[in-house]
Amino acid sequence: MPLASAAPVMLTASERHRLKKMAYGHKTPHQARQRATIVLLAARGRPNARIAVQTRLHVDTVRTWRGRFAAGGLPALADRKRSGRPVSFTALQVAEVKALACQLPARTGAPLSRWSCPELAREVVAQSIAGSISSSTVRRWLKQDALRPWQFQSWISVRDPAFRPKAARVLDLYARTFDDVPLGEDEYVISADEKTSIQARCRCHPTLAPGQARAMRVNHEYDRGGAVAYLAAYDVHRARVFGRCEPRTGIRPFMNLVTQVMTTEPYASARCVFWIVDNGSSHRGKKAIDRLTRAFPNTVMVHTPVHASWTNQVEIFFSIVQRKVVSPNDFTDLSEVRDRLRAFEDRYNATAQPFQWRFTTSDLDDLLTRLDRHTLDRQEESSARLTA
């Protein structure tokens, strides 16, 4: 029988350009590169046997892709749709697994603090949601909705009955307003607090500097060299820090910090200096307000709400100190701790810019609304569970 002749291939200029990009492109998939090469060689009039030798493919493969291009053009070089593997799990099963991941393990009786993908897969089988399932399948389903039940965050509920007015007062001061009156040029806002127990840990072996493909190495064992308290006052709008080290915290160390700030200009002659503090024992309640006013009549103490130190901007500065000065802790003695903290203050004050505080009273109202809604949902859930 006579052999069937090879399908003729004629290319337009645009088809030739696209095929060359496919055949010689560095990011082209290997199969697409092979198919484009077959068509380009066929367009030069070469027989299938010779193309098979040049491309190191079977002649039937060459014949297939040559014929498909001749019949359908460039779209015919793509893979045809396949039926694929039959679905192993229904949409209901997927939803039930995600719902299980959104429950606390204690609700199901599992002796776990939080879910992992292998534990979820085991629980799915135990509850007969599916006959068998792998942890990788569970992980893929959870990833679709960004569910990570193995992670957790700590949080604290609002306990101060005057949370809103106290927090709003602090936030208004950050926006240079007090009792709906803009602050003047001779009025300042100071954020103050204490960072307790900065230890001097003398490592038993010297710290090794970082090297190529090696992080800094700090010996795990250390000798205790005592601890010191670091008190800081941060001018919110001028980005200036005043700090001091004391053996411990208390009323007297805090008043020493206040004296250090209020005896320097421009605070000594200022019309008013607002001191934002939390509810620590060194400056708590009405007695602390009266104590500060007696010592410096041009001061006003403003307390943050209970358990809301995050509204105090000096905590941001303390986090910077922790990252850049204290960690990893490797000091020979307390004098080195004090010297480094003083040197860092000078370094920070030379280039510091005010923090870009964006949390306003409007954001505060939105936060309280979400918390109220969350509390109401939990109460309704508890009531439904009790009546069930």
Rank of each mutant, 00 (worst) to 15 (best):
G25Q: 13
L11P: 13
R370L: 08
A232L: 09
A213H: 15
N48C: 08
A175W: 10
N256M: 02
I276T: 09
R214Y: 02
L183T: 11
S382M: 12
A36W: 11
V59F: 01
R16D: 07
P86K: 11
V39N: 06
E345I: 12
H17K: 14
R291A: 13
Q199M: 04
S382T: 14
R252T: 15
A23L: 12
L92C: 04
V53F: 02
R107N: 11
V228A: 01
E336R: 13
I289Q: 14
W310L: 02
V62N: 00
E123G: 01
A167K: 09
D193C: 03
G72P: 02
Y174V: 08
E381L: 08
R50F: 10
L368I: 07
A233V: 01
D377C: 09
Q93G: 07
L57V: 00
L367F: 10
A76M: 09
C202Y: 04
F296L: 04
T28P: 10
V337H: 08
V302G: 09
P253M: 03
A101H: 04
L11N: 10
C204F: 02
L3Y: 14
A229C: 09
V53H: 03
R148A: 13
H205Y: 12
K286P: 10
L92M: 11
P8W: 01
C245N: 04
T177A: 06
K195N: 01
A121N: 07
L208Y: 03
L208S: 07
L171N: 06
V9H: 09
V158M: 07
Q322H: 11
H58K: 13
A91C: 03
P47I: 03
H283I: 11
F355S: 07
S116D: 08
A352M: 05
I38T: 12
L386R: 15
D278L: 03
M216W: 06
G73H: 06
G84I: 05
R338K: 14
W310F: 14
L100W: 04
E221I: 01
K143M: 08
R217A: 07
T263V: 05
L231K: 00
I190W: 01
F318V: 08
D372H: 13
S88A: 15
A52M: 03
A268N: 05
R122E: 14
V53E: 10
G225E: 05
A6Y: 11
V277R: 09
V300F: 09
C117D: 14
H17E: 15
V321A: 09
I190H: 03
N48Q: 11
Y24E: 15
P206I: 02
D223C: 09
E96I: 04
V337W: 05
V124C: 15
S5M: 14
A106L: 11
H205A: 12
S83T: 15
D290S: 14
V273F: 00
M216D: 05
L100C: 05
G280H: 06
P206C: 04
